[in-house]
Design a protein around this nucleic acid. Structure first.
Lengths: 233, 233
DNA sequence: CGCAGCCTTGACAAATGTCAACAAACGTGG
DNA sequence: CCACGTTTGTTGACATTTGTCAAGGCTGCG
């Protein structure tokens, strides 16, 4: 039920690109291809990890809950997988996931993933590279959380997004502000105030459109570090 | 230069136990066995990852710094490895490490680790299991940080330590309080006050000796969750 | 003994969260 | 296309949490 284009997108992912064609086809045979509207709960933390998910189009929020509170852990954009660690370990999901836009998503049965993982060396190595990358990204996020206050986190987030979108000083927030606030570990009210506090540093906000007019000043405030803010190191 | 006993301890680790004997010996040939006093800086974040470290005896603190601040990320107890992700990826360390007790430590050259990783399927699979485990532990730590306030973090920490040491209601803090405070994301002053706030919940502190006399009450306050507080799930 | 480092305590400051109100943006159905 | 209700974002006043600074006690070690 997978369209050729989708298969090609999958194959283009680092994690699938090196594996034997026959194993890739074996994975595809058990795969489900689905379209979800925005706002659908895909997985709930604690559930057994039946599937490895791949987002082909749209956006998915990973979040976690405890004692009536909820926090955004990450936002997944195409094309990438999520909850790989749980699938490989055959352990319960630690995070929940919901669509925040209309999404095209592939579900690969975790048992198939584990089977191929045991047979295909190239795939096993790719999984290691992916996992170590996710681990390091999370170490950086933890340093961000523990070493910086909320204003510094926002300032560095803006600089990262700016770099990611070409460094022109103009870009769009790809997420609702309330979700951004939760991701940054603060309340929406506080995010609102933090944006205003950054005005003297050349941060202009118009809805989702951000313009940075004094990147040097903002950088002095934010003190970005390659060991926290670089994307792939 | 490795003593037979040490080699056996290494071999006993999940990550090394399944690999071919010849490959294990190859790893040992390049290994350095060393003893460090307390307070020695082993690695500094940002350095190239020349070695994979294994603690045989003692305790090592992993910490991170930014802009004059410092935070404890984890404490490593024997027998286990640390900074595996950086070694495998050949990427700079994201965390610094220092001994907090006298330590026996093995250093395995990262290039050897990567070479064996490419040849030995069992080792590659063990690395995946180890990395996914580290990743999930860090997801839990992040949920702990973002979803709980400092009192709740301390309460859950005490319950985890109690379970880990047999659940008798009596155990010892294996780390200085200032380090514990940093690990929990708070100041030493605040940790001190948090302990006093927990007195009505049956938390008795005598130096490093902790006694929990009302575990039920403390549990009601802490609301521990398997998806945050269980050790290996 | 005396020094140094850790822990604790109190007073105070700063950061962050909560609550309430309202405005703006959005989607839906008439 | 408009009217309506819902959600999101903003703002102000205030409460709570957390951090900072300074002082003093305790402990371990030379």
């Amino acid at each position: 039920m997978i369209r050729p284009n989708d298969a090609a997108d999958l194959r283009g992912l680092d994690i699938f690109s090196g594996m034997a064609e026959s194993n890739f086809e074996a994975l595809l045979r058990g795969a489900y291809f689905q379209i979800f509207p925005a706002g659908v709960d895909l997985i709930v933390e604690g559930d057994p990890s039946d599937f490895l998910y791949v987002v082909l189009e749209g956006a998915v929020e990973l979040f976690a809950s405890w004692s009536g509170r909820e926090t955004t852990m990450a936002t997944v954009h195409p094309v990438s997988t999520f909850i790989l660690a749980a699938s490989i370990r055959d352990a319960p999901y630690l995070m929940s996931a919901r669509t925040i836009e209309k999404c095209r998503i592939v579900l690969l049965p975790s048992s198939d993933v584990r089977a191929v993982f045991g047979q295909d060396t190239a795939f096993a190595h790719a999984v290691v590279m992916e996992l170590s990358q996710c681990y390091r990204a999370l170490v950086k996020a933890t340093k961000d959380l523990k070493l910086r206050n909320s204003l510094e986190r926002l300032a560095n987030y803006l600089l990262r997004q700016n770099r990611r979108s070409g460094g022109s000083g103009m870009f769009e927030l790809r997420t609702e502000k309330r979700r951004l606030a939760s991701y940054l570990g603060m309340t929406p009210e506080n995010l609102s105030r933090a944006f205003r506090t950054l005005e003297p540093y050349g941060v202009e906000v118009n809805g989702n459109q951000i313009t940075l007019t004094k990147i040097d000043d903002l950088t002095i405030l934010a003190k970005p570090s390659p060991l926290i803010d670089d994307f792939s190191r």
